[in-house]
Design a protein around this nucleic acid. Structure first.
Lengths: 114, 114
DNA sequence: CCGAATCCTGTTTGATACTG
DNA sequence: CAGTATCAAACAGGATTCGG
C-alpha cells in the first residue's frame, strides 16, 4: 500500500480538534457521562466521580458551562443548592460517549482475557 | 423510543476512563486520525499535524506503541526510515473517531452559523 | 532522516483548609 | 452545600542540540 495524502485528512483533523478543545481536561468526559444519567448536584458529582477535588470539579464545570455543554441551575431559597444538567449541545454528545463506552468496555475485556 | 437499558453510571465511568487513558494527550487523536488514512513516516506526520514538535511526536508515538494502538516499522538499509501504521486495536477506534469527526464538524457549522 | 537528551518555562493538578 | 484560597508538585510543551 502506498502512502498518499488524502484531502479529507486535514478536514478531519480540524473537526477533531474543534471537538477535542471542548472536552479536553481530565474530568470533563466523566462529568458529562455522569450528567448523562440525569441532573446532579455539586456534591453528588463529587462523590460519583472518584478522585476529583472540589477545585477541579468547580473549574471543569465552569469550562463546560462556558462552552454551553452544561447548564447550571441555582435554586436559592432554603439552603443554597445548585444542580447541573446537560444542555442540548451536551446531549448531542451521547453517540460519541456511547462509542467511548463501547470501546472502553471491549478494551477492558481484552485486558481481562490476557 | 422508550427507556432502554442503560449501563450503570459507575460502570460507564470506568470504561470511559480505561479508554481515555490510552488516548489522552494533546496529539494522540490527531496522530490516530492521520494514520487512519494510511501509513505515515515520521516527517509526514510532522508536516501533517500542525504545530507538533518532534519531541511531542516522538513521545506520543511511543505511548501509542506501548499501548498497541500503532505499529512501528523501521526499515533499515539506505537511509534510516520508519513508518507507522495503525494496529488492529488502533483500527478498532475508527467508529469512535468517526463520531468525533461528525460531532466536531457539526459544531464547527454551528459556530459558523452564529 | 529519525529521533534522543537537555534545559527551561508555564500550565495543570492535587491536598487541604476555609468561607458564606 | 457549593464552592474559594493557598501552596506545592507534577506535567506539558517548546527550543535547541546532538547522534546513528
Amino acid at each position: 500500500m502506498q502512502t498518499r495524502i488524502i484531502p479529507a485528512c486535514p478536514e478531519r483533523l480540524r473537526s477533531a480538534r474543534a471537538a477535542l478543545h471542548l472536552i479536553d481536561g481530565k474530568w470533563k468526559i466523566p462529568i458529562l457521562i455522569a450528567l448523562g444519567f440525569g441532573t446532579r448536584r455539586f456534591q453528588e458529582l463529587s462523590r460519583e466521580i472518584d478522585g476529583i477535588s472540589p477545585k477541579m470539579l468547580s473549574k471543569e464545570l465552569k469550562d463546560l458551562e462556558e462552552n454551553d455543554l452544561i447548564i447550571r441551575m441555582p435554586h436559592g431559597s432554603p439552603t443554597i443548592a445548585v444542580t447541573y444538567a446537560l444542555s442540548p449541545l451536551g446531549k448531542s454528545l451521547d453517540k460519541l460517549l456511547d462509542e467511548l463506552h463501547d470501546w472502553g468496555a471491549a478494551f477492558r475485556q481484552r485486558l481481562a482475557g490476557q
